[in-house]
Amino acid sequence: MLPNIEIYAPNVVPKEEFVVSGHRACQGCAEVLALRHALKIFGKDTIIAMATGCMEIISTPLPTTAWTQPWIHVAFENAAAVASGIEAGLRILRKKGKIPDKDIHIVAIGGDGGTADIGLQALSGALERYHKFTYICVDNEAYMNTGIQRSSSTPYGASTTTSPAGKVSIGQQTWKKDMVKIAAAHNIPYVATACPSYPFDLIEKVKQAKMANGPSYLHFLSVCPTGWRIPSEAAIKYGRLAVETGIFPLYEIKDGKYRITYNPEPLRPVKDYLKGQGRFRHLTDEHIEYIQKRTNEHWEEIKKLASLK
């Protein structure tokens, strides 16, 4: 049973929509859902710099736009650099009194490809320079926009169009890149994982990210029914399974301090998460055992980090 405060969602979550109906996301897209939640918390006084990708392409075919906050798209790999510029530009214009002295939050958004692969350098630069902005990685674990090609954020064993499972391949052969650790290595004030299957957890983290006194990084697991080959209605369920199996732990690193924000122990077996997904359909028990082992190790590692002061 959900706690009382959560029961009446419209009473505790802002009603205003910043990514409006009419956007062309696939049915059951949990990525646009994650942004729908996040943008409600960032609110009106926000500027978005978005990387090329699903969210950009579903929202802005000229001459219409699904966004109601100021929004800019420049290219694939540079959302963090564009956001740096916006932040710096507003800072000087405010200092010179050319724009009203009001707090405007800058949010850069990229997919896993735009973050962990092609945009990693620009992101690292922006975090290191300590611009006050939030970077959101909406991670659907492959290049979905171009037709489900693997990225460095694609999980081990997933079959994609460029890491197909075949007679001599299990699909993706490498382990998912740990973007959270990479972001945290920049010693920024706030880093967190979240998933729209846990909207209140996500909302709380967006609030923290917005308040951080420096750059913040949010990593949203964004279930993609199209790319993961699951029924659209199961998008929320698979996000929940990712968390309950320990595949995607929900935690935050605030001023260097780790905290698990939702502890799903005892963990469900990873098989529960893997089995219904078309992208993992080919995995054998042996593969699943390997994934189980590494998942446990990762979960224990996070737990250990979280128990440290």
Partner: peptide, 23 residues
């Protein structure tokens, strides 16, 4: 749209106009 009817830099001022498209 004719070419001169697009705003400079193809800016869109009608925010939230995706509502025009009924999904």
């Amino acid at each position: 749209y004719k070419w001169h009817e697009l705003r400079i830099g193809c800016v869109i001022e009608e925010v939230g106009s995706a509502r025009e498209y009924k999904t």
